[in-house]
């Protein structure tokens, strides 16, 4: 089947209901097939997880099939990443991610909630998740939750989202656009073609000819949009932006902030990494 062009879309009605229908329900349906195509960790994320200190615990917000939960592979058990996702069917796969004789910690939850003791984690990652939220405000709230759930004096956060700028390795086509640099991203739906043998309904509805197609909603991020979202979230939390102040800077005690460590594009995705700091 040839790759299909992305289709522009407009989010209508209540954004939460829209996400239920166009994101969560779809992932529950396609979980097994989807997971079989998502096994290769991206290098920036693998490096981030390798750089964490032994004894750290973290949150993978929107863990999907849990492919980042076993990392780093060369230091098993040195850190613990807890996976949260809306799709129960994906979590059933995630709890066995990496090794079937090993159980991961996963829970059903919403990336806009905060069911944790305050700032209890050392790190948080959110990979290919925030782009499924249907409004700018909801995406900003998701970033706020990440900044809130990690320790204010050393927490590290890495966020990955899908970019409008796609590379040739991706089989998807970018939407035709005359505006060379749109300031804000684009809402699209991406078809998922569920192969017949993995379709849950294939036994019950034999009359369906050919594979089933599910459309997933995405917000494709424009250049600079993810960083802007992070800076807006930081401002709402009264976090300064910049490097950790030095002792001679005489910054008021307990002043808090974030430092943007990385801000880039990799393989059709934008990513931002920040570190939290607190003056002492």
């Amino acid at each position: 089947m040839p790759p299909k062009a992305l289709q522009a879309t407009t989010v209508q009605g209540d954004p939460e209901t829209y996400e239920d229908q166009n994101v969560h329900n779809v992932y529950d349906e396609i979980a097994t097939h989807f997971s079989s195509t998502r096994y290769k960790p991206w290098p920036i994320i693998a490096n981030f997880l390798s750089s964490l200190m032994t004894g750290w615990i973290g949150l993978d917000s929107g863990t999907g099939n849990g492919k980042y939960l076993p990392l780093p592979l060369d230091r098993p058990g040195d850190i613990w990443t807890i996976g949260l996702d809306r799709s129960r069917n994906l979590l059933e796969i995630a709890r066995k991610a990496g090794r079937s004789d090993f159980t991961r910690e996963v829970l059903v939850g919403n990336v806009l909630d905060n069911p944790w003791r305050p700032a209890v984690f050392d790190y948080a990652i959110s990979i290919a998740t925030i782009h499924h939220l249907a409004t700018h405000e909801r995406r900003r709230l998701a970033v706020k939750r990440l900044l809130e759930c990690v320790a204010p004096d050393h927490g590290r956060v890495l966020i990955y989202v899908w970019a409008i700028e796609q590379d040739e390795l991706s089989r998807r086509k970018v939407i035709e656009d005359n505006d060379p640099s749109p300031p804000i991203g684009k809402d699209v739906v991406v078809p998922w073609v569920l192969s017949k043998e993995l379709s849950k309904s294939s036994t019950s509805s034999k009359q369906i000819a050919g594979p089933q197609v599910y459309n997933r909603y995405y917000h494709m991020f424009a250049k600079g949009e993810l960083l802007r979202l992070v800076l807006e979230a930081a401002a709402e939390l009264q976090l300064q932006v910049g490097s950790r102040p030095k002792a001679e800077d005489a910054v008021q005690n307990d002043t808090r902030g974030i430092e943007v460590v990385q801000d880039g594009w990799e393989r059709s995705n934008y990513y931002v990494e920040v570190r939290l700091w607190q003056a002492s």
Partner: peptide, 19 residues
């Protein structure tokens, strides 16, 4: 009850965060 690999260095690092 399922056995897990013993990693004392992880436990020492995690200990201060436990309630």
């Amino acid at each position: 009850i399922r056995e897990a690999e013993f990693n004392p260095e992880f436990l020492k690092g995690f200990l201060p965060k436990i309630e």
